[in-house]
């Protein structure tokens, strides 16, 4: 079995009376030589790693080796302890978990790429917020990862998921879209509603460029992961209310692909445009990499 479009995904769900996650699990069974239990265990291992990354990130005060990120999870936690967040429990916790994950990523901690390392914060953020506030069981969260992977599979094969290839819209855009659809399915929405949520989320991030300061996966990547969780929840709420994306999801993905293809290379991870090219961005790059030598051996002093 192959899923070549969101339309096809919905058709298969309808025909087989399965939700998106169950369809993905069945497809994986057919396409790999593994049995269902093995596949579920492998996915559970990834969920456990996400939880572990969040747990470690919550208490970390470390900075990344660049010195330009780190320590914000702690600030967010302090704020939540003493004040009522404006964005509510679901979103504020999802933001904190995403922050913990993406800060860990910048510090070379262990993360799960979802679908990339640069966008690793969004999905774990929403999943563990659902666990805390909606009481979603561990077993359901594992199924949520299958839902997410089905949506990501279609996007990745029809367009792209990396900032270098298609800008941040491809990276955080895809991660947010699959997180939105996953929230809908975990909250009992239909496959159609999940796909509408994915479309609405992706539309909200269309055109977003990849402009990392000094080429590092830190500024603005970490905060874009964080904000991605709030777009995922807003999009999911719209879809659960029965609101549809006027442009079908497959066409939104096509638009994302076309925009990415048209995006100049300066705005696709090369750190030559956008925020990377601001005065501050350029200063950071100069400070970190200004004295690059053409050759190095391991016994000489290091400048990092």
């Amino acid at each position: 079995m192959e899923l070549s479009s969101m339309n096809e995904l919905i058709e298969v769900c309808t025909k087989e009376k399965k939700n998106i996650g169950e369809v993905m699990l069945k497809m994986e069974e057919e396409n790999s030589a593994k049995d269902k239990d093995t596949i579920v265990q492998l996915m559970e291992k990834r969920l456990k790693q996400m939880e572990e990354t969040i747990r470690r990130g919550q208490t970390s005060t470390d900075l990344a080796s660049s010195g330009i990120s780190g320590g914000d999870t702690r600030k967010m936690n302090n704020y939540l302890k003493h004040q009522q967040p404006l964005s509510g429990d679901y979103i504020s916790d999802a933001m904190t978990f995403a922050l913990a994950t993406s800060e860990s990523n910048a510090q070379m901690g262990v993360i799960v790429a979802t679908p990339t390392a640069g966008a690793a914060g969004v999905l774990p953020g929403v999943l563990f917020s659902l666990q805390r506030h909606a009481g979603t069981s561990y077993k359901d969260l594992v199924m949520g990862l299958f839902t997410a992977s089905a949506l990501g599979y279609v996007i990745a094969n029809r367009a792209f998921v990396s900032g270098a290839a298609g800008g941040c819209q491809a990276e955080i855009g895809s991660a947010t879209a699959i997180a939105a659809g996953t929230i809908v399915e975990l909250k009992g929405g239909t496959p159609e509603q999940a796909v509408h949520a994915a479309a609405i989320a992706m539309k909200s991030l269309l055109g977003l460029v990849c402009d990392p300061v000094a080429g590092l996966v830190e500024v603005p990547c970490i905060k874009r992961n964080v904000i991605g969780t709030s777009i995922a929840f807003s999009s999911a709420d719209l879809a659960l209310a029965g609101i549809e994306s006027r442009i079908p999801c497959d066409e939104v993905i096509q638009a994302m692909y076309n925009i990415g293809k048209d995006m100049p290379s300066a705005l696709r991870e090369t750190a030559l445009g956008g925020l990377a090219a601001t005065d501050t961005g350029k200063q950071v790059k100069e400070r970190l990499f200004g004295q690059k030598s053409s050759c190095r051996v391991n016994n000489k002093p290091r400048d990092m």
Binding site: M43, K45, I111, V112, A113, T114, A117
Partner: peptide, 24 residues
């Protein structure tokens, strides 16, 4: 289709910060 498995989307488990510049 370059991506063939659910684990191409959810995964790999890796040290950060970049799947292409680090994990690969």
């Amino acid at each position: 289709m370059e991506f063939r498995s659910c684990f191409d989307i959810i995964g790999p488990v890796m040290v950060g910060p970049s799947s292409s510049h680090t994990a690969g």
